[in-house]
Nucleic acid binder design. Structure first.
Lengths: 149, 149
DNA sequence: AGCTTGTCTTGACTCATTCAAGATTACGCG
DNA sequence: CGCGTAATCTTGAATGAGTCAAGACAAGCT
């Protein structure tokens, strides 16, 4: 799911310098989906024990600006990052445990991009966050579907 | 657009105590759309100069939990609140100035609530944020539509 | 009016994220 | 292959939204 050479190539293609922190961040993101900065720092330090948190923050910012990673930040959560970009996909967030999963858009390529009334805005992206309960939390809450009051 | 008596009624109907900070917060929100906490504190203190910021935070949390106000938090922004609730509407956010406007959903009552693959989640809400440029920023950037390269 | 419980004040604190200054490193060039 | 320069990283401090906690206060029931 991505080698270092692969990541290096992606960086060069975007005109970015190839540095160890950036490679490690890309590697971390290819393993961890929707990781927060802290988790990314942890993963990165497994390879490069001495990276500064600042380098990770910088890398994430740079990679995000370059479009190589995507930042998402559901209400009430810290920033999270994912390396799946370019396709138009959305997220489901569990209200209880915060678990996040990917969701392909139901409407094809550019879903919902047509707001009924755009107030004069030039819209270029529609970001959708679905809220609900993940399978585990849903089960924990209503063990059987029979105890609904 | 809402008197104190009106707000008090809404609070009682939800089983909440009627307090000055809460009334002031509701009043502030009926004037300011999509205000952040700081703006709300400012507005509230115009009526009640001595409210603590904590009271405002508490009120906002309580009112949000009760469903009387809605919290939104676009990536990169602090928490913002609005009193328009119950209808299913979304937001456009300007990438440059952060301006937010309301958008009615294009798809009727429960838009996009059907994800193509819900990963087993029990989805109960779809939150949509449109990203783009507000009229002002769009104009500032491409004064005439003729200088497109 | 008095009681009880929820709410507010005050003030300290957390923690994600940013800022700043100087040391290092990537990489184009000779 | 080694240099120079600008970008990047390290270190360490600062910012700021939001939270926590203890005690004072007040809303609403009786």
């Amino acid at each position: 799911m991505g080698s270092d050479a692969d990541f290096a190539e992606r960086l060069r293609a975007t005109g970015l310098r190839v540095t160890k922190p950036r490679l490690a961040v890309l590697a971390a993101l290819s393993e961890l989906a929707h990781a927060d900065t802290d988790g990314i720092i942890g993963a990165v330090r497994r390879e490069l024990p001495s990276v500064s948190h600042q380098a990770v923050y910088d890398s994430l910012r740079t990679l995000t600006d370059a479009g190589l990673v995507r930042r998402i930040q559901p209400t009430g959560s810290v920033a999270r990052y994912e390396s799946r970009v370019g396709d138009n996909h959305h997220h489901v967030v569990c209200r209880l445990c915060g678990e996040i999963a990917d969701v392909d858009c139901a409407l094809g390529d550019a879903p919902c991009l047509t707001a009924s009334d755009d107030s004069g805005f030039l819209i270029d992206e529609a970001e959708v966050i679905y809220w609900g309960l993940c399978p585990d939390c849903a089960t924990a809450r209503t063990p059987t579907s029979t105890d609904l009051t």
